[in-house]
Design a protein around this nucleic acid. Structure first.
Lengths: 345, 345
DNA sequence: TTGTAGGCGTTATCAA
DNA sequence: TTGATAACGCCTACAA
């Protein structure tokens, strides 16, 4: 059995109250003498507080629920790492769950974690929710009085705190870059249309075209699913449209394009320019290194934690839910080049 | 406030005992009538048990501590995902911690998780431990009566359950492959010498050379740190030794070699053959696709969980700690080819 | 300055 | 078949 406050109290011949007071540094100024006696005994007996019992009475578990679509995805694993490390600094531990991008799992984990009395939840929702689902989520949060923070993807509801990326700006930056390289037929491989980030990044694409006075051609848009294979499958179509450049809404699909280009004996960027999105670590090791839109993952994670801590420490009311938007940046490497008249094939 | 058993009891005019009995399906056969009344009330009141309170009395938290060196590393994030998903099936949740590969953090998280009364710990140790540290770790496990399972890396101590990869076989397979392609000067980029896996993979390398009647040349060994940069830095030295092939003890360093080869205008595999270790997802998208040694991560994770579950369900005594060893497999892609006499440079 | 006692929500023991 | 009651380990009003 682990030693308890009782054991310590017995050992020093004082009450559990006194021991507890000392151990928690309570301001009931306990004289230094007793204080040290207690501390010494606690140390000698190797006393470690039982968090379960503490939670029972304080109603705080110092535990955060982290709900992510897929931790084996580079972006999320990086995010998870940052979030865990930051919370760790504050003495919080992280319980995590993979939803595999399904809405039911979002709710399942949320309820599970709430049942386990987490102090807060950080989540990336699996998809866009319907009105009803948003309402349901909000009710759960309210009823259980647990603050929820949305990271990376948010819901159309201002009542949730969220920290996001300006996805539209990212789309704009990428497209604008290609336009300025002289490209006119720029294809775009999107993510699932049900995801806000797909829509927003695409909006940036459209917006850049518009600003440049270029027409938006729906034929140049291919829907993908953010996985490598989408890129592989999209290429033939893109070539058929005589596009000279591609904006892939994430790097994984861009990698698929790379691969398929090799099969077609096309070289990047001479035959096809390409810009991705995410800036996953592998980008700089591809041949040629992939130009992409970088997200400040570390800043995003750090901000999410810091913000949540202010809420947990009661300095801020979670209902004053605001949204923080981080700016992406274009990272130029070697996968896009100036448009040249295509040699006849 | 959440509804409690008390609320339910009050609502149906029965005692908390009866309610608890029903809700937990206890064999004290409560008549169907009362049973249904209770169940209905619980449902109507949206009763959810308070896990904290349950843990308080049952001494089980249904929580597992997962301690990994770096969850942003592809291998570990994949492992973490499998482990979480499997435990989830059994109704367990996972608390995770990143040690950043430092021994102090191993212990810090272990103690933290034990203080939080996890039912078990799954960990990948950060490094080789000294006798003293092993003893210390074992004492902590014993004293707190928490089963610990070592995954991927283990300690020189048969008292811990572990599930490992036959690292030596992996080293053998890779080297043997290169030998059979006709290579005689095969360089090896190792990981930190303090890590068992480095040593064991290197042993496989030596063993393959020996079986082929080839001499072991220490000059062909370069110590790396498992990061991309090590590969980058190792290449010039390797070329200086006139090696025609490289066995990189992990894929990240192999990627570094790829990159540096481009700078030197060397093509793989014509100018240099290379085999990696780990089989991270990106391998097949490199140019050329990287041949490597694949670990059955999913099987490893699943086994670890299943084994731990038998211990947790009391079917097995954790002290009968055995070790499961999985076999790696050579995955041939395009980064190694038959040795050809080098053209003069 | 320190101690008593009650309570957190649940399960378990034992009696009725 | 059901109900008091204690117990888990800790915190904290309130009392002394």
């Amino acid at each position: 059995m682990r030693t308890t406050v009782k054991d310590v109290a017995k050992a020093v011949g004082l009450s559990t109250t006194t021991v507890s007071l000392v151990l928690n540094n309570k301001p009931n100024r306990i004289p230094k003498a007793t204080r040290e006696i207690v501390l010494k005994a606690a140390k000698d007996l190797n006393y470690r507080p039982n968090h379960i019992a503490v939670s029972m009475v304080t109603k705080k578990t110092h535990t955060i629920g982290l709900i992510l679509p897929d931790i084996s995805n580079l972006y999320f694993s990086e995010l998870a790492k940052v979030i865990e490390e930051q919370f760790h600094k504050y003495g919080y531990n992280v319980l995590y769950g993979n939803t595999n991008g399904t809405l039911e799992h979002d709710f399942e984990y949320l309820n599970l974690f709430i049942d386990r009395s987490v102090d807060a939840v950080i989540m990336t929702v699996s998809s866009n929710y319907s009105e009803k689902e948003i309402k349901s989520l909000h009710e759960i949060a309210e009823m259980n009085n647990v603050p929820i923070m949305m990271v990376d993807r948010t819901l159309d509801d201002p009542r949730f705190m969220s920290v996001l990326l300006d996805q539209k700006l990212g789309g704009y930056l990428a497209t604008n870059y290609l336009i300025h390289l002289g490209h006119r037929k720029i294809a775009c491989i999107t993510g699932p249309k049900s995801l806000r980030i797909s829509i927003e990044r695409l909006e940036g694409y459209k917006s850049a075209l518009q600003d440049a006075g270029l027409p938006f051609d729906p034929a140049l848009i291919v829907e993908g699913d953010f996985r490598v294979d989408s890129g592989v499958q999209a290429l033939p179509y893109i070539l058929g449209q005589n596009a000279t450049a591609v904006f892939s809404l994430n790097d994984m699909m861009a990698i698929g394009v790379y691969r398929e280009c090799r099969r077609y004996h096309l070289s990047i960027p001479q035959d096809l320019s390409i810009v991705g999105f995410d800036d996953i670590f592998i980008d700089e090791f591809l041949e040629p290194p992939l130009s992409t839109i970088a997200q400040p993952v570390v800043e995003i994670g750090e901000y999410a934690v810091k913000k949540m801590m202010t809420v947990l420490e009661g300095e801020e009311d979670p209902s004053c839910a605001d949204t923080m938007v981080f700016k992406p940046a274009l990272k130029v490497r070697g996968s896009a080049s100036k448009f040249m008249e295509k040699k006849q094939m």
